[in-house]
Design a protein around this nucleic acid. Structure first.
Length: 587
RNA sequence: GUGGGUGUAGCUCAGUUGGAUAGAGCAUCUGCCUUCUAAGCAGAGGGUCGUGGGUUCGACUCCCGCCACCCGCGCCA
């Protein structure tokens, strides 16, 4: 049985709202509770000021009235929470040490944290469409964001109680196959007998086919023919296509394995190829789509741009495109998974496409009386090269994801070997794998996803400051403490001395903010809020670690500090797990 | 042309939706390893928040104008 609230900002908001009601305010009031600067308290309610302004009342007087009402609340009356007014009318709240330790006791296990957090989304089905590489090409640095941010969002949603369907919408049915098959046939390449890196060989063949088609009109025509044959189910080309996909999937899985990413559904665009006729039919029949220059398109009359900028759902040559399969995919997902939300992770350049898609689906579903899930386009910025321009897929210069990960692991291995030469090499290799891969992952997660970022080896592989190694280091030091005292990490607040030192209190106060950071990340699906929180928590822990020795003679003090360590470990582990990052017991 | 994004310390970035003295990391400088892992800790310097107006008790945050860069805009995904 829990003795204190999980999310104190909610609790305090409730207190304020109750107090406000007793002074006669019934509506139009927003408590606006947020974590406070430690100088002022643990939380602050700023809502008095805007309300007083709107009502033309004196904020200080109003705050005083609310304060008097707050004092009647049992938690304030018994001294668990102290309240005061500051400045023009801020209300500051400070939690007493016993309340902090009560929280740490109530929520001292991952199960307890997850149980509370899962109330946020309570079992709704959410489809997340992320990663989505194209077959016949290697995953490159540009795929990091969708994959890593997408995975973190899936884990965040799942931790907050959603039933997440991870769907990798592979690009396996595009125009690239005509040129690729052309090159394969020209070289008489045997896909079953490629030596070495098969996916790299496919990529070479694709580039060759692409160059052939570009230089020579008849080759371009041949490529088109190969594509048509494939789309008509020609056995030879189908066999090639299946082989190409098998090779591609193997290379994707290598990356996903390293990143710990596992999909529930891997339905490529090809999966929808027999479902597009229904889309043409329904959109035409319902009057949403019309012919224009030989193509089937959707205009949105009420929209200032999409009234003239078409959403092309069938090309003039009769072939389907991205828009078609996306429409068919929404319908399939709604029928199959009954989601409350469908979330797409792609870079921001596709905003128009998704806006048009969502508008079209909305009207389509209204006509067909299908309930509309919340369609969300979660965008992220572009990864830029040194020249400030987007790293291009076909430039041949793009950094392969595989190489990036290997470089990260290599660098990590050198550092570990230098810092900790006594560890056996196999241990150092394992540790390096976790640190290298997750330094890269974290570098992507820790910044606000909407901005572009400059690709730089040093940045992605940095091991200092706000990085995964810093967080993992804090975790490793906690494990080390428990090894030293020969105990397993667990909280034991009943036997602990009261929280006392500045560092102990600062750490406890940081720990109880976990639910706030979690909700903040969830609200806009921005993992960087959680990263910032975990980084700050690690910083507060490091200060505590340097100031307050844990392994001391006084048993009650030692128990308290060990409990703080266990609590910190728990929150770090849980938070990192939400981000998709495993922890290490030593490094 | 039009729509969107970005602009905060030398560099790379945060800034919880209008709150209290704008914060980190890197780089520079000063201290701290016989004591639980120094990938760490304590501290110093470094800012006209692109720019000009406006709104108000209060603006990096909201509104308007301007500048710079990036991206999208009919058969790629």
């Amino acid at each position: 049985m829990n003795t204190v609230a999980f999310d104190f900002s909610h609790l305090i908001e409730k207190l304020v709202m109750e107090a406000v009601r007793t002074v006669g305010i019934t509506d139009g009031f927003n408590a606006d509770v947020k974590p406070a600067d430690p100088r002022f308290g643990d939380f602050q309610a700023n809502g008095i000021l805007p309300y007083a302004k709107a009502q033309k009342r004196n904020p200080r007087e109003l705050a005083t009235a609310v304060l008097e009402a707050l004092k009647k609340n049992p938690l304030v009356a018994d001294g668990s929470i102290t309240v005061e007014i500051a400045g023009p009318g801020f209300i500051n709240f400070k939690l007493q040490p016993k309340v902090l330790s009560a929280w740490l006791d109530d929520y001292g296990s991952m199960a307890a944290l997850e149980k509370e957090s899962s109330k946020l989304l309570g079992g709704q089905n959410i489809v997340v469409d992320y990663s989505s590489p194209n077959t016949a090409k290697q995953m490159h640095v540009g795929h990091i964001r969708s994959t890593v941010i997408g995975e973190a969002i899936c884990r965040l949603l799942a931790f907050c109680g959603a039933n997440v369907i991870r769907d990798n919408h592979i690009g396996d049915w595009g125009t690239q196959f005509g040129m690729l098959i052309l090159a394969i046939k020209t070289e008489k390449a045997d896909l079953g007998k490629i030596e070495g890196d098969a996916i790299a060989e496919l990529e070479r063949l694709y580039k060759k086919g692409s160059a052939m088609a570009k230089d020579n009109e008849s080759d371009l025509e041949r490529a088109r023919q190969e594509l048509v044959k494939l789309q008509n189910g020609d056995p030879e080309n189908m066999a090639l296509w299946e082989n190409i996909n098998a090779i591609s999937y193997r290379s994707f899985d290598e990356i996903y394995e390293r990143l710990g990413v596992h999909f529930d559904k891997v339905l490529g665009e090809s999966f929808y190829r027999d479902k597009v006729d229904e889309v043409y039919g329904e959109l035409t029949e319902s009057g949403l789509a019309q012919m224009s220059d030989g193509a089937l398109v959707v205009f949105h009359e009420e929209h200032p741009r999409f009234n003239t900028q078409p959403f092309i759902i069938r090309k003039s040559d009769g072939a389907s495109n991205y828009a078609t399969t996306d429409l068919a995919t929404v319908l399939y997902r709604v029928r199959e998974f009954h989601p409350s939300q469908i979330i797409y992770l792609t870079d921001a350049r596709q905003s128009d496409h998704f806006e048009q898609l969502f508008l079209t689906v909305k009207k389509w579903f209204e006509k067909k009386n299908i309930s509309m899930p919340w369609l969300r386009h979660v965008t992220f910025g572009t990864i830029l090269g040194e020249d400030g321009k987007a790293i291009k897929t076909r430039s041949g210069e793009s950094v392969k994801l595989k190489d990036l990960l290997s470089e990260g692991v290599e660098r990590a291995f050198r550092i570990i070997s230098e810092k900790n030469p006594d560890l056996p090499e196999s241990d150092r290799r394992q540790i390096a794998e976790v640190i290298g891969v997750n330094a890269i992952r974290y570098a992507d997660l820790m910044q606000n996803r909407s901005s572009d970022y400059l690709f730089s080896w040093d940045k992605l592989l940095s091991f200092e400051g706000n990085t995964a190694p810093y967080l993992l280091y804090a975790v490793a030091r906690i494990y080390s403490i428990f090894r030293k005292v020969n105990a397993v990490p667990a909280v034991a607040w009943k036997a602990a001395a009261p929280l006392e030192t500045e560092q102990e209190l600062a750490l406890a106060r940081k720990l109880i903010e976990f639910p706030v950071a979690l909700s903040q990340s969830l609200q806009d699906l921005r993992p960087h809020f959680l990263c910032s929180y975990l980084y700050e928590l690690s910083g507060v822990f490091s200060t505590f670690y340097n100031q307050d020795k844990v392994n001391v003679e006084d048993l009650a003090v030692r128990t308290k500090r060990l409990s703080l360590c266990a609590g910190t470990l728990l929150v770090l582990k849980t938070g990192l797990n939400v981000l998709g990052i495993p922890v290490l017991e030593r490094m």
